[in-house]
Simulated assay, not measured.
Amino acid sequence: MMGFSHAATGVLAGIAVTAPLHVAVGGPQGPVGLAAWAVLGAGAALVPDLDHPSSTVTRSQGFVTGLLSRGARSLSLAVYDFTRTPADDSGGGHRHLLHTPAFAVAVGALTGLACQLSWWATTATVWFLSFLALRGLVRRLVRGGARRLLASWAGSAVAAAAATALFLSSWAGQPPGWVVGAAVALGMVVHSLGDALTPAGVPLAWPVPVRGRRWAMLGAPRWMRFRTGTWPEWVVRAGSLVGTVAVGYALVA
């Protein structure tokens, strides 16, 4: 699983969109705002793996996210069966519906609508994404007692609550719901693009058929793909973190 790598690319994506969002809605762009968007991007970039029973997001909230995972897998299989063509033969489970840009946009739109209608939905969404971000990043970036504390459920929950409070307080009022929804959609798309760098690929074009297959597994050119756990993944991960620092410095300076 590429949990840490997905979170790292999500951090970069989250920070990269702060400048245009600041121009569009006047949102926070200082250090606190940058950190908030980085956290939201990292958390959202882990969401698509809810279709895998042992992923970071599935294990994050015990029974609750375990139940959501089973529901996500059932939905993915049902949509696959309903929309497949005779040429499709990939099964419909992991790396299917939840790994499509179309589904990411739909989830982002629904999240944005919920957050627009309810302050509580905004708070819950930001807290959950912050919790996921800590789960995805802390075990690689933090050492010693701090890692043991943050890796625990209680430690992650408290840290996520603090991150949520900082995010909400950095806005003059409640952030526009579509902004939170956009962060969710962006992180999910970044996840799928990351998986498109692996040999298996993902159904990026769904529901548009490609050579007769609606669930065609697409990705980067073959020479650019790599297996998880090999040195190219490390390069992507390190490059994302270095890029985050560079973009963040450019925006703050």
Score class of each variant (00 low, 15 high):
146 A>H: 07
119 W>A: 15
134 L>G: 13
161 A>Y: 01
147 R>E: 12
162 A>C: 13
139 R>N: 11
117 L>H: 13
126 V>N: 02
163 A>M: 13
150 L>I: 07
113 L>I: 15
134 L>V: 15
153 W>C: 08
152 S>A: 04
116 Q>N: 12
166 L>M: 14
127 W>L: 14
123 T>P: 04
147 R>V: 07
166 L>P: 08
135 R>M: 10
135 R>T: 06
124 A>G: 11
136 G>M: 08
143 R>N: 11
124 A>L: 15
140 R>G: 01
115 C>A: 15
137 L>E: 05
109 A>Y: 00
121 A>W: 08
153 W>N: 13
133 A>W: 00
127 W>M: 06
148 R>N: 12
116 Q>T: 15
149 L>I: 14
158 V>R: 05
117 L>S: 11
155 G>R: 14
165 A>V: 13
121 A>F: 05
161 A>K: 02
109 A>S: 10
135 R>I: 04
166 L>Y: 12
151 A>F: 00
138 V>C: 09
167 F>H: 13
145 G>S: 12
128 F>N: 05
161 A>I: 05
120 W>M: 10
137 L>Y: 00
130 S>T: 03
112 G>F: 04
161 A>N: 01
108 G>C: 08
134 L>T: 15
138 V>Y: 01
144 G>C: 04
141 L>P: 00
124 A>Q: 08
110 L>F: 11
113 L>D: 04
139 R>W: 06
141 L>I: 14
167 F>Q: 09
122 T>W: 03
120 W>Y: 14
118 S>E: 00
161 A>S: 14
122 T>I: 10
129 L>G: 11
120 W>R: 15
125 T>A: 10
128 F>Q: 09
150 L>G: 02
131 F>D: 07
132 L>N: 14
113 L>M: 12
162 A>D: 00
123 T>Q: 13
154 A>E: 05
145 G>A: 13
126 V>T: 11
160 A>S: 14
151 A>R: 14
137 L>S: 11
148 R>S: 15
157 A>R: 04
121 A>L: 05
163 A>P: 07
133 A>N: 01
155 G>W: 00
131 F>Q: 09
134 L>W: 09
133 A>E: 00
123 T>M: 12
149 L>D: 00
152 S>P: 04
156 S>I: 10
152 S>W: 01
110 L>K: 07
165 A>Q: 06
122 T>C: 11
127 W>Y: 10
135 R>L: 07
131 F>N: 12
155 G>M: 05
161 A>P: 08
137 L>T: 13
